[in-house]
Simulated assay, not measured.
Amino acid sequence: MLNALREIWLSSGFAAIGWRQIVMLLVAFVLIYLAIKKEFEPLLLIPISFGMILANLPATGIMSPPTNGQAGGLLWYLYQGVEADIYPPLIFLGVGAMTDFSPLLANPWSVLMGAGAQFGVFFAFLCAILMGFTPQQAASIGIIGGADGPTAIYLSSKLAPELLGAIAVAAYSYMALVPMIQPPIMRALTTKKERTVRMGQLRKVKKVEKVVFPIVVTILVVLLLPSVASLIGMLMLGNLFKECGVVERLSNTAQNALTNIVTIFLGLTVGATARGEIFIQPGTIKIVVLGMVAFGISTAAGVLIGKIMYKATGGKINPLIGAAGVSAVPMASRVAQKVGQEEDPGNFLLMNAMGPNVAGVIGTAVAAGILLTMFGV
């Protein structure tokens, strides 16, 4: 009996668990707390953190590949959707179906702020190179600055899969922390006079413009950067579903059922890559720090572009909306409005901020395409 009990103990996870796994379980608990108590990106942080728990429980084999005719673990099979670059484009399909590009079409100059916010991506890329990362790893780290989780996963799965867990956790953490990170930067770079600028209502965009836009953007961007055809193509297809008005069932499926299913699979499997023996190392701390730098610089660059446009238009543009040039839709737009209303409660910047915000979604995908073209194998 004692020998049997001893064998059960030795074959259990309790006997095999190490300090790295315990640390990762604690990190997962913190993420679950933030997702539930603080509501920081719960739709992704909960499956990511639970995937971390499953992957760091010893002896489960849940992420093991098939060997010697034996089946692999459940999450290994689901993870093939990440390795084969299936999940991020499908997420983009849903994002496109939920996104209204009218603010960008009403104010095309918004694209400058969306483009300016990508400066943090390339700044962090250069910093990562100086810190000893390979160009492929540096590109994957830099894209965190765009605050676009699916794009970060897409790029890192192609260029630096060994860093996927750390990059995904950093990217989604900073997306969740937008309301905390951005306001101090926005206030520091703007004056009270600039923050109180009222921009007024946007012009009404015609349906034909909304329908033509995703088609034209797909053709132009994919011709320029074929490497992001799947991301841009799915984003714009989802938007065409939304705007054409004749495929409501497809639009609803892309926005709800499909996006929810893919979000579960993506979160679980990305979280499962954050295993203790891979995640806990000095490089992970560097990634977290560089991700913060990238996001901060992206926010600052967007605001500075907004200040330039404020001067160029004689004070008609509120620079705060430049901070919405990152891809966190619509959270960054809400933050711009909130900071503006702290100075003037009657100021409504949300729709004006949505222009740079949706431009940032396209801009981050374009930035990823440039990096993938330069450093892809």
Rank of each mutant, 00 (worst) to 15 (best):
A336M: 05
V121K: 04
V335E: 09
G238F: 09
V246D: 01
S110E: 02
L350P: 03
G120T: 11
L5H: 09
P319I: 15
L164M: 03
G283Q: 14
I261Y: 13
I185P: 08
L44G: 07
A188H: 10
F133K: 05
K307M: 10
S12T: 12
I278M: 06
A4G: 13
I264D: 01
N352W: 00
A59F: 03
G267C: 03
C127V: 14
A332Y: 01
L189V: 08
R6S: 04
Y154Q: 07
M113P: 12
I46K: 09
I280P: 05
D344K: 01
P42M: 00
A106M: 04
F29P: 00
K210C: 15
F279N: 04
T253F: 15
F348C: 03
I362M: 12
F40N: 03
G325C: 05
T67I: 14
T196K: 14
S12M: 06
P66K: 10
G120C: 06
F40L: 15
L126M: 06
N357K: 08
A365Y: 03
F125A: 04
F213Y: 03
N260H: 09
N68C: 00
G13P: 03
A254C: 05
I22H: 04
L43D: 11
I141S: 09
V212I: 15
L220N: 07
T134A: 07
A176C: 09
L258C: 06
L372I: 12
Q118M: 07
I215V: 14
V217N: 00
A138H: 06
S156L: 00
T284F: 08
V111A: 11
E194P: 07
K193C: 01
L126P: 03
P88K: 08
G142T: 10
S251M: 14
M236T: 07
Q201D: 13
G360Q: 12
I143F: 07
V222Y: 10
G291L: 00
V217W: 02
K286W: 13
